[in-house]
Simulated scan of single mutants.
Amino acid sequence: MRAIKKIHNSEYRPIADLITYSPMPTRSIEMIDPFLFLNHHGYQTYPANNRGLPFGPHPHRGMETVTFILEGDIMHKDSSGHESVIGPGGVQYMTAGKGLIHAEVSSDQFKKSGGDLEILQLWLNLPASKKMMSPNYIGLQKEEIPVLELDDSKIKIQQLFGEWNGVKGAFEGTFPIQMSTIYLAKGGAFEKEIPASENIFFYVVRGKVSVNEKEVDFRHLVEFENHGERLQVEALEESVIILGHALPFNEPVVAQGPFVMNSEAQIREAYEDYQNGKFGSWNG
């Protein structure tokens, strides 16, 4: 089995009135190459006539975002012309590439009516060769994402990137990557072989699971060693996990604010390009 290096607790980092926990980066872990950053918003219930999500227009360069909407919704709009509202069970995949401006806010309906909200956003690095690629965005509703079932339907896997048991993911990654959102009924179990050369991203969103004979509670991130290939997972409670794996880039990472590049000079260039209007125009 793949050896576990450490289990990391999330740090509480509220944003305005949005409950937010971040398991990475924290004081105990910086990144799991090429997985850079995760914010876990909620679970919380918004009243009617609320302000919704606080993520107005802001720029990005050199990275990608994968946004998991478990409850509530997100209205996405960006300077490349993409716009959508994605609801519960849906996923958004955005490639910032050479640069764009985007906003992630709640729909008018959610702000008016309120409701439950739980949303996670994971940042993926881009390899140096693709940091200046053209931006892109795809938003898919729950019913548009392929689902694989295991263990007499006690395990339901939303396949996002890569392939699992012949089920191809909903998104084509810009580099080789596997990623799934996994819903587990209590007692549900699965095994997965992952090459020792690949880094694993394993985060428990809800519930409690046993992974390779270690108990992991919700809002905890599991960091694995790079030896052993098998994961054995069992749900000790009804649970949700995010599981991803990919080869590390092993490239320098210089991150500042919304930009993730390979050098300080590239970060300065990103700020200059943004200030000079090279990320596109924003029409609110």
Rank of each mutant, 00 (worst) to 15 (best):
W123P: 03
A255W: 05
S22Q: 13
W164I: 11
G207Q: 12
L221Y: 03
N276A: 10
S80M: 15
L243S: 04
F202T: 05
S281R: 14
G56I: 10
I4T: 00
A255I: 13
L38K: 02
H40D: 11
N50K: 06
N250L: 10
E172W: 10
N125Y: 01
E104I: 06
S153K: 15
P258S: 01
Y183D: 13
F68N: 01
G62I: 01
H82W: 07
S239M: 06
V105G: 01
P54H: 04
E71C: 06
N276Q: 14
N212G: 09
E30Q: 15
G56R: 09
A246W: 02
I194T: 09
I182L: 07
R230L: 14
N199Q: 12
H8N: 15
R27H: 14
T45Q: 14
P135M: 09
N262I: 07
H245Y: 14
G42D: 13
L124Q: 04
E104D: 03
D17I: 04
G139R: 05
E118R: 09
D33R: 05
V105T: 11
Y183F: 14
V205C: 04
G162Q: 12
V211Y: 02
F68I: 07
G52C: 02
F68T: 02
Q109G: 06
K214Y: 10
I155R: 05
I19F: 03
A270C: 06
Q178F: 15
S134M: 15
G56V: 08
G166M: 08
Q266N: 12
Y274L: 06
D17N: 14
F279H: 00
P258C: 02
H58F: 13
A189Q: 15
E191M: 14
F224I: 06
A235D: 07
E71M: 04
I200W: 00
P195Q: 14
E251P: 01
F161W: 08
P23T: 14
I155Y: 04
I119G: 00
L124C: 07
M179P: 05
V105Q: 03
V205F: 07
